[in-house]
Simulated scan of single mutants.
Amino acid sequence: MSVSVKDVAAAAAVSVGTVSNVLNRPDKVAPATVARVQAAIDRLGFVRNDAARQLRAGRSRSIGLVVLDSANPFFAEVARGAEERAAREGMAVLLGNSDQTPSRERAYLELFREQRVNGVLLTPTDLEASAVRRLADSGIPLVIVDGELPGGGVPSVAVDDVQGGMLAVAHLLEQGRRRIAYIGGPHSIRQVADRLEGARRALAGVPEATLEVIELDALTVLHGRDAGEEIARRSAADRPDAVFCANDLLAVGVLQGTAILGEVRVPDDLALIGYDDIDFAQSAVVPLSSVRQPARAIGAAAVELLLEALDSEGAAIRHVRFQPELVVRASTGP
């Protein structure tokens, strides 16, 4: 049999209102009374009905977070940063994985609306998606993570991925590589498109250099492995001498794919660089060069922007942008 607030009030010889204050506003109750009520709660094994409390208040203690790929260690670190910052405010983070699928993203956004979460942190599959716009217009605070809505009408946290793409390809050019391939996709994902733009800008000043764009359906190790095998099957004259991958999972896959056939050596025949600098990058058989972005700081900053929006409806819309960092390892040269 469940224990009610009335049971606690009777056991502590106080009113139901006093128990409610102890649960929600303990600073308004005398310390001795708080101790007596808490003792009754512990003795009876009372568990508060948080769902009912949320319905009455119209707000929960939860924050929704939807990422493109929860299996990607980068997004795991973003979630950890968000959880650490939210915990300091007594809030929890509910994680949803869209798997780069718009329909799954829409389902999570609708679920979070129904759950009356305090707000949503979102890495969108498509910044132009109507579902994102509807959420922004529904009154639920929204923060875009690792991107920015066109027009800038919603707070956002991002990394300068154009600069990151420039860093990666400039490094390959400095190593003497001239036939460069960019592997990523789909290009509807803002990060993939921006990193490609950065690659093109880096190549603009080197007329003898070429850029081959290989668009994939997803940013996974398996997709990278398929791309690596395809490159390894080419003749030496037809294949690139360097590959820039849109993330480290793809780069790990390319490394595996070239190793399977054994025809292409990294970095001798093919310089390889990824993006994110996940733990797998430095522990690969050939440690991967990468472009680092501060994943945990991104998650924490997103929660901070959400808290600002919750504290004041008229708060100024802020856009936080981090700068990427080039990390050089064995996969791009000696």
Rank of each mutant, 00 (worst) to 15 (best):
E77D: 15
V264K: 03
L172M: 03
D217T: 14
D241V: 09
D99V: 09
R265W: 00
L307D: 08
V266A: 07
L219K: 03
S15L: 09
I260A: 15
G333P: 00
R233K: 14
L255H: 13
E215Q: 10
A259M: 09
D161L: 02
E89M: 08
Y108I: 07
G81I: 05
L305E: 04
V78W: 03
R113Q: 13
T125M: 01
L326F: 06
Q191C: 11
I180P: 00
A170Y: 01
V78R: 07
H319R: 14
V120F: 01
I144A: 05
E229N: 04
Q323L: 14
L167W: 03
R88W: 00
G153I: 03
S4E: 08
A52C: 07
A209S: 06
G147E: 02
F75R: 07
A236Q: 13
I140A: 03
E230N: 14
A236K: 14
L127N: 02
N247D: 11
G274S: 05
A199I: 06
A35L: 07
S62I: 04
A107T: 12
V22L: 08
A202P: 02
G147T: 08
L326G: 09
G253S: 07
A87Y: 03
L121Q: 01
A87K: 11
D42R: 15
P155A: 12
L250N: 06
V206P: 00
D160T: 02
V264W: 04
S2V: 13
A204F: 05
L255M: 12
V66L: 03
A11G: 02
G152A: 06
P102W: 12
V78T: 07
L250S: 05
L109A: 10
I183A: 08
L94F: 15
F244M: 10
H319V: 12
A40T: 04
V264F: 08
L122A: 10
G151D: 05
V285W: 14
A52R: 10
G164V: 08
L261Q: 11
A315D: 08
N72L: 09
R36C: 01
A82L: 05
A71G: 14
P334K: 11
Q175G: 12
G64S: 09
R239M: 04
E229L: 15
E304T: 15
A30K: 15
A281C: 03
D226S: 14
P324L: 10
D311K: 12
L272R: 04
V19M: 06
M1S: 13
G198K: 06
E197L: 12
E215T: 14
E308M: 11
